[in-house]
Amino acid sequence: MIKNIQKTEGIVIKHIPIGEADRIVTLISPSIGKIRAVARGARKPKSKMGGHLTPITRVKISVAKTKTIDQITEVETIESFREIKEDLYLLSIASYIMELAESFVQEDTEAKQIFNLLLQSITLLQIAPNTKMLIKFFEIKLMSQSGFKPEMIICSECGIILVPGSYKFSFESGGLLCHQCTQKIHTLTNQLSINSIKLIRFIQNEKFGKIAKLNLTDDLQGEIENVISGYIKYILDKDLKTKSFLDLIAKQTKNSISSKSLL
């Protein structure tokens, strides 16, 4: 029995086939957070919905609340992000940031900030030359918006203001530790250089326009990658499925002349 219909917009994250011709689709919406709903007949060639419910598509959608799983009644594409879908490297980045966003969004909970961040990042992905910084921008902003902002100004244990220098980052405390607390607390930590600390603070406070201009050394890139990926893994308590694919394609893209498709 259909109770009510909610109209919202959303970004299609993934889908799985179910039954003869249906699909269960997962979306992130600003108004009701994560949506998991069935699209009846979406796998049939003549389906009015199938083509619109492709991952990495921004859509207008109507969802009927039912006693069991919600049902998609109408869908229309707002933006299909074609450039991303036709480039394997961009696609692997988009898959990663979408899986990450999905992990931080709950069902039936407003997620306007995360939705806007995801939309902004996917839109930028089509034009941004600095994709590595875009990933870091997304990760760090997402954590801040989800209540896991890495503490980079004061000691995350005792609260004293940290003078410029190199410190250890504790996953458990969610930020830097002063030298005294580092001695007392035995948790998972990573050493961060003064430049890495400055960089994370910069990303936390600046817009992408400024961040995109940065060109990092491999050492700095690796240091930040270790801390941020480790912290995300600690928060989520799982490995992201898309991460290994992103790493594989990034490695291949580095060696290859182009990852553009001929499709």
Binding site: K48, T54, T57, S80, L262, L263
Partner: peptide, 30 residues
Amino acid sequence: NNFLSEKKIKTSVLARGLSIGSDLEYTDDL
């Protein structure tokens, strides 16, 4: 395709577009 084009092997894909009997009105942009 990325792998094969580096090895200079010709690749092709099946044509993409409207399926027979479908409706232009309900077709997605891509």
